[in-house]
Write a protein that binds this DNA or RNA. Structure first.
Lengths: 197, 197
DNA sequence: ACTAATCTGTACCGATTGGTACATTATAAG
DNA sequence: CTTATAATGTACCAATCGGTACAGATTAGT
């Protein structure tokens, strides 16, 4: 930890990064302009380029930040949940908030990015794969715990079920953006939950 | 059918519309530029504005065109399929082509649009809802036929199952864009199919 | 006080965006 | 052949895109 002379930062990099993340999350990469970012992060263009390197590099940092943020939330939710199956139901149900309009239908930054870039950018594709893998791992742990607790038959393939759950989360989030009503989504969740036992 | 004087069209509007549709399908709305469209449609800018009104209006026409095109394909596939359940399996399996890299991972124009616009544009939101409804109807018919054929229990809610299938199609397409391998996707399809019986 | 290092504000860059104005060309009806 | 109508080609528009150059401001060490 060496101290160098020079003017100190006038902003908190993590706060600024979080603001950028929220914006990318809500609007996607392409339709988020530098101007939008500067306003949301409340820093000058020079500072952004100096501290984050540019739009693309900032976006990649946001993807990582999102992964940490969201996986952290999921991990604590899983730990706090009385049962593994309860956590899964809660997670699927969280999409209903978006459908109700309670929260914004901004989906998941990782899945949004997968849809927006569709493997066109190798760097981004890798970040998407990494993020998705982390979510998968949480779901897989939840499934295994539910199996240990007797709520899911032990002979079922936990990896497959975790993949199935990720796919359903993704589908639900897309349908939510498509304007699906809450009742339809409840039905989908019901069918998906029944598929686990 | 009245004949008016004036210079005749030098292009087939349907051919041009299809070319535009393919481009929007592959690249999305925002990242498809006018220049891209003119090149793919092989018409001049004047002709595009004269015949289609502009980018946004052209896009809406493409959405309708896509709906006709895709629902038509699905309807004939369903009619040609020996069983309703076979059609459903075939439809879900079609996503594997994208995962294999056999065909491009461009997903579904309606779902892509839902993800890109996320209800920000009311006009587009309505087009998305309409398109999705048409897909849902095909799936619903397939489920009812499978029920009549004894492959799906008659007491199960056909609407719910159709919604579930749309959601899974969507999830699979997103995961395909995220770079999921074929084996994972086969597993997901297996779980989803099992959820129907 | 001076210097080296770092951050910030201002002004600017070429490229590209979707869209428009208008003259020119090609047809059908009279 | 003239005229009304419609399609096309050319030139242009302001606005915005992400990015850069550079001077000014603010610090720590000497």
């Amino acid at each position: 930890m060496k101290l160098s002379p020079g003017r100190p930062l006038e902003f908190d990099p993590e706060v600024a990064l979080t603001a950028a993340m929220q914006l990318f999350w809500k609007k996607g990469y392409e339709s988020t302009s530098m101007q939008d970012l500067l306003q949301a992060m409340n820093i000058s263009k020079s500072s952004l380029y100096q501290a984050f390197g540019g739009k693309q590099q900032l976006f990649e940092k946001c993807m990582d930040h999102y992964g940490d943020f969201m996986v952290g939330k999921m991990r604590t939710a899983l730990a706090d949940s009385p049962t593994g199956l309860g956590f899964i139901r809660l997670l699927l149900g969280s999409v209903l908030d978006e459908a109700r309009g309670t929260s914004e239908a901004r989906g998941c930054l990782v899945l949004n990015t997968a849809n927006e870039f569709a493997r066109r950018n190798p760097t981004v594709a890798e970040a998407v794969a990494t993020g998705l893998g982390r979510f998968h791992n949480v779901l897989q742990d939840a499934v295994r715990r539910a199996q240990a607790e007797g709520d899911i038959p032990p002979e079922r393939d936990a990896v497959m079920l975790a993949n199935f759950l990720v796919s359903n989360m993704s589908g639900l989030k897309t349908l939510s953006k498509a304007g699906a009503d809450e009742a339809s989504m409840r039905g989908i969740i019901e069918v998906a939950m029944k598929a686990l036992v």
